[in-house]
Write a protein that binds this DNA or RNA. Structure first.
Length: 271
DNA sequence: GCGACAG
DNA sequence: ATCTTGTCGC
């Protein structure tokens, strides 16, 4: 075996298939391209008013997956009234996922269905269109500064906020003792500290979302909103650790998935 | 070999 | 994301 063959052999064994590598290179170009349109300041009047006067509808999105089939999922979009946080719109849709989950490229797996859900709402009842979306995952706190919340924001032109349950360790950010100590110093719900990468950029913030949670959530700018506004808004939506719009989207997509899975098994069994 | 790896 | 029960605490 020549040295060249050994190199090829290593690539095949250790790395993802070449097709997927080519795909992620394409995805990377797409992210870099879309990122040029990102807006990281407040664009809406309600964002600078006290108590977000003028904000009436806030959306949440999520996807749930069954354990037995990695091709099917339930995509959900909910809209809550603000500040009451009551669900005024719910849409769950079974979908066939086309892309695998690859860290750093979550949007290419989930975002198409979320864009569909927004388009569907626009046709069904435009008056229920959310004025801001909370997205499961990160915004600019991302390998290339363009996480799923940015991606969805650009494709829908809606203000978006990234809400992640775990710290994505990029740009030198680490969930180390130093980080954990800062978390322990967060006293009350609403307390937060900025996440500054080795690049010097403020990538997001760790937020103690409610008094009871010892583990923070990680907030980052998606589109058309600042980090400061995002932190205030997300905190104002937290009855529990996970902000209500995302929590409701999560609960409802899970339920819908269970219901649909049960039905498909019934028809398969012939009952 | 070990840790990371949004969802 | 999903796999998983009870359990300790307020």
């Amino acid at each position: 075996m020549s040295a060249g063959d050994a190199q090829i052999q290593r690539d095949k064994v250790e790395d993802e298939p070449e097709r997927e590598q080519a795909e992620s290179r394409q995805w990377e170009r797409e992210q870099t391209h879309l990122r040029k349109n990102l807006i990281t300041f407040n664009t809406e009047a309600w964002q600078s008013h006290t108590d977000f006067l003028g904000l009436q509808r806030i959306g949440g999105v999520d996807l749930s997956y069954p354990k037995e089939d990695d091709k099917v999922a339930c995509a959900s979009l909910v809209v809550l009234s603000y500040p009451e946080l009551e669900v005024i719109y719910e849409d769950c849709q079974m979908v066939t996922v086309g892309a695998p989950y690859v860290a750093g490229y979550l949007a290419f797996r989930e975002v198409p269905f979320l864009v569909d859900a927004i388009h569907k709402l626009k046709e069904k009842d435009p008056t229920l269109m959310p004025q801001v979306l909370l997205v499961d995952g990160n915004g600019i706190l991302h390998h290339r500064g363009f996480g799923v919340a940015c991606h969805l924001g650009i494709l829908t032109d809606l203000p978006c906020i990234g809400v992640a349950k775990n710290l994505l360790q990029v740009d030198g950010l680490e969930n180390n003792e130093n980080h954990k100590e800062k978390i322990r110093q967060l006293r009350n719900g609403g307390d937060s500290f900025n996440l500054i990468g080795i690049s010097g950029n403020i990538l997001g913030a760790a937020l103690k979302s409610c008094n009871k949670s010892s583990k923070p959530i990680y907030i980052s700018v998606g589109h058309k909103i600042t980090l400061e506004t995002s932190l205030q808004l997300v905190h104002s939506c937290c009855r529990y650790r996970v902000p209500e719009p995302i929590r409701q989207a999560d609960i409802r997509s899970r339920e819908f998935l269970c219901k649909k899975t049960a039905i498909s098994e019934t028809s398969t069994t012939g009952h």
